[in-house]
């Protein structure tokens, strides 16, 4: 409670309480996450309708995606979800060092995910497959739609990972500066919730894009 300061020398028992509402802060985070769910929900809906309409073309196009790199990124994201959860558990158990370590590992995993994504996209782009490319426009509609959705959905997801890295780095700073402590770690919990949502979205993106046979 290092924020509580005693003010007023004349009135010895006047204590200024810092107003803090942890449940309210978390509720705000959950509400924000639902807007995210609906944002991605609209894209999953578009995907579902077109996959229903062009199932054969989607199957052919999906076979070109690299299942290995997709699986690797799944493992990376799942593990990063574990480390951010461990970081919160560590601060609850007064283990600041472990908390900082786990949060740093999470950031490293997030960056690894983005590096893999970069190589994956570059391989596709080098094969001439990117929105409005000559190669792609020469293909049937279903395949154009598949790759369009692939770039938009994994791209927006990647943007979320990037924002997650920035948010997690801020949390790391707060943790080191003792702004996140044993009795005040809601910030870290909320950042964790955001990070788990990014993981959740990937849990659905992965089978829908990489595992169509």
């Amino acid at each position: 409670m290092n924020h509580n300061t005693i003010v007023g020398n004349e009135y010895n028992h006047t204590i200024e309480h810092v107003h803090r509402d942890d449940v309210g802060a978390k509720m705000g985070m959950w509400l924000f996450l639902f807007t995210e769910v609906l944002l991605f929900g609209g894209m999953f809906l578009t995907y579902a309708v077109y996959r229903y309409q062009y199932s054969e073309q989607f199957r052919l196009a999906a076979m070109e995606l690299n299942t290995g790199i997709g699986t690797l990124n799944t493992v990376i994201l799942l593990t990063s979800s574990l480390t951010v959860a461990l970081s919160i558990a560590a601060i609850q158990k007064k283990n600041k060092f472990l908390s900082i370590l786990m949060l740093s590992v999470t950031v490293v995993f997030a960056l690894m995910f983005l590096v893999n994504k970069y190589f994956e996209w570059m391989a596709k782009i080098n094969h001439g497959i990117f929105p409005a490319s000559e190669e792609l426009l020469g293909r049937p509609n279903g395949q154009i739609l598949f790759f369009g959705l692939y770039y938009v959905m994994t791209g927006l997801h990647g943007l979320h990972v990037l924002i997650g890295v920035i948010v997690l780095l801020f949390m790391l700073y707060f943790l080191i500066k003792n702004d996140i402590t044993l009795d005040n770690y809601t910030k870290l919990e909320n950042a964790g919730l955001y990070w788990h949502l990014v993981d959740l979205i990937w849990i659905f993106l992965f089978p829908l894009f990489y595992l169509i046979q």
């Binding site: 509720m27 979800s81 788990h196």
Partner: peptide, 29 residues
Amino acid sequence: AMFIAAIKSALVINIFMHIKFDEPIFKVF
């Protein structure tokens, strides 16, 4: 695939995101 993804989501939401032990209002959300 969707069934397995749903099980994975349930694990992440309940344990990692702590919803199982949090305020009931979050479950309503």
